[in-house]
Design a binder for these strands. Structure first.
Lengths: 222, 222
DNA sequence: CTATATAGCTGACCATCGGTCATTTCAATC
DNA sequence: GATTGAAATGACCGATGGTCAGCTATATAG
């Protein structure tokens, strides 16, 4: 009656199946970290786990549903670590730096976030998509609560901040997603361009501008 | 000696080859508009043009290089229409609305922009990538010039504005890229979420905050 | 006007992908 | 031990992007 499922044993009970599903996700996340989104293949994932490809599709309807699940997990995980680092009455700069560094530190969160809408959400069944959105709504709520304390903003303002930070994070980290040009010989102007799109300062500077903008918009919220 | 290349004729001169390349791009852009990035197939594009697939690869090294070329074109095209709509001494809101509406109106620009770094730039030869970056640098320069007049900002501030608008555009339009849920039965909270991420106001509000933030940062630019 | 050489063009071919499903096999129950 | 139902399998399918030896149109030479 053990709940452990050895790799060659079948998962029969609901509990064992949940366990196997989690094991798949765990290997998938490691593998994703290794090779990145584009090179991620279901066949290779199956081999890595020691299951047949078809078996993966018993646990996830599509490749994208697997990614969506990893995204939901990573959102919750990042959200928690971010909150843990927050304190009451922070400057908007410290808040933003915190947000950026915790998000970057999670190797799964940002890469999946930036592919969410135009890749992952296509090819996922609508009910699954809805449940993911509800996870998101819930996290916004949780984050807004602490943000409100941390930045001394009204709840409505804090919600606005949280939603906008997501948008900015997607835009600002875009530059980190290009091919590595570290050891390439680049003309000086291109070098300078890359430096000027360095994601951390880009995010922080604009996050501060936005937060202070929201703060300045006093009572009326339009 | 006509420079027209009928579809069953061979392009021999440099001029004819350039013409054929342009013809391929033109059909590709229409096709991209029809089916979107993910469904775009090189085989089907070849059929649409009336060429063999292999021939496409004489004109573009990879699928992504074709997309990069379309992106460069669309950036220049959008940039021009945006500039044409600008006037001296605009409010930051009018400026932002203008930027958003012209960018959205170009069906190619935004979809390629948001896929630039994590899809298109991979699988393109480095020298081609560099030339694309230089097109970008050039457009930033041109845009900064008119932005400086239009928003009454210093040149350095205008450059900052232009670069940041790109980042914000990527983030704000993300929500338009999800699957169409128009005719789906969605719970109220999810409905509200989608409305609250409506891209136009999301962009304009934050663009204004950022522009005013930059304006307020007086002389010192850090 | 014909022969030759060049190079634009072709499409069968390749590896690989995500996804399916008839079949096999294991383990809980009788 | 026999039965049975569901978990697991992997050959198979229709695609994809990309290649390349061979074909053929055409500019030029004789």
């Amino acid at each position: 009656m053990s709940s452990v499922v050895a790799i060659n044993q079948r998962a029969r009970s609901l509990e064992q199946k949940a366990l196997r599903r989690r094991a798949v996700l765990q290997v998938a996340e490691t593998y994703l970290l290794e090779v990145g989104y584009e090179a991620f293949s279901m066949s290779k994932l199956a081999k890595k786990i020691g299951l047949a490809k078809g078996t993966l599709y018993l646990y996830f309807q599509t490749r994208e549903e697997l990614f969506l699940t990893l995204y939901d997990q990573s959102l919750i995980r990042w959200s928690q670590t971010f909150i843990d680092e927050l304190s009451d009455s922070m400057t908007s700069k410290a808040y933003s730096q915190n947000l950026f560094s915790t998000a970057s530190a999670d190797g799964t969160f940002v890469p999946l976030l930036i592919r969410l809408e135009h890749m992952i959400e296509h090819n996922v069944a609508i009910p699954r998509l809805i449940s993911s959105k509800q996870v998101f709504i819930n996290q916004v709520e949780v984050l807004a609560e602490v943000t409100s304390n941390s930045l001394r903003l009204s709840k409505a303002q804090a919600i606005e901040v949280v939603k906008t930070m997501g948008v900015l994070l997607i835009g600002a980290t875009q530059g980190d997603q290009g091919p590595s040009l570290d050891h390439e010989e680049l003309p000086e102007d291109v070098q300078n361009l890359i430096v000027s799109f360095s994601s951390e300062p880009l995010f922080v500077k604009n996050a501060v501008r936005i937060i202070e903008g929201i703060r300045a918009e006093a009572g009326s919220n339009i």
